[in-house]
């Protein structure tokens, strides 16, 4: 039998035949390495996201083999591309349909701030309709940058407290977007 070593970042107390850690950390580790992303790819950044999924950059290395196109079975919403005002309500609906816990990655300048399109038809950043966890700059970002953003999401997922989604702060935060929390 080889010696089993756990992730160095997982704080554990090791002894003979047992291992102790907090349940937050164990669950965080499991969640982070099996995120199911929902690619909400609208425009140019979507093509770079396709490249990230493709063979050279291979997103599957990070436990993301399966793209979940149904919001109900997704943990990570990847918004890549311009979101117009016409599309804003659709995006919000998709976010609301996702089950907790859920994270949002905003890829590219358009999704993060409207980018070069300061016009009557473009939403000036998706954080006007849904909360965002990580922003990736670039127009469009390179696949390496998108992967970096996903690594940041992994860090957040690993370190998140299990109680966070039930806290009143979290519900208040969602309330500012007029989204009702589906936590129990």
């Amino acid at each position: 039998m080889g010696k089993v070593t756990l992730d160095a970042k997982l704080e554990t107390i090791n002894g003979q035949g047992f291992q102790l850690t907090s349940i937050d950390k164990a669950i965080g580790l499991a969640r982070a390495n099996s995120l199911w992303p929902l690619p909400f790819a609208t425009s140019c950044c979507g093509i770079e996201f396709m490249a990230t999924m493709g063979s050279n950059y291979d997103l599957a290395r990070f436990g993301m083999e399966r793209m979940s196109f149904s919001p109900r079975q997704a943990d990570l919403l990847i918004v890549a591309g311009t979101i117009s005002k016409k599309l804003g309500p659709v995006l919000k609906k998709v976010y609301e349909q996702m089950a907790e816990p859920k994270w949002v990655l905003s890829v590219g300048a358009c999704a993060s701030s409207g980018g070069i399109f300061d016009t009557y038809s473009v939403l000036q950043g998706i954080d006007r309709v849904i909360p965002v966890d990580v922003y990736v700059p670039g127009c469009p970002p390179r696949p390496e940058q998108i992967i970096d953003g996903i690594m940041k999401i992994h860090e957040m997922v690993k370190n998140e407290s299990l109680r966070r989604r039930n806290s009143s702060e979290y519900k208040d935060m969602l309330g500012t977007f007029n989204i009702e929390s589906d936590g129990e």
Binding site: K85, D118, T119, Y120, S121, Q124, G125, R128
Partner: peptide
């Protein structure tokens, strides 16, 4: 919106 008297930016925006 493409008529010349209307501006490019959204007139109702509050974010900028």
């Amino acid at each position: 919106p493409m008529r010349k008297e209307y501006q490019l930016e959204d007139a109702t925006r509050e974010d900028k």
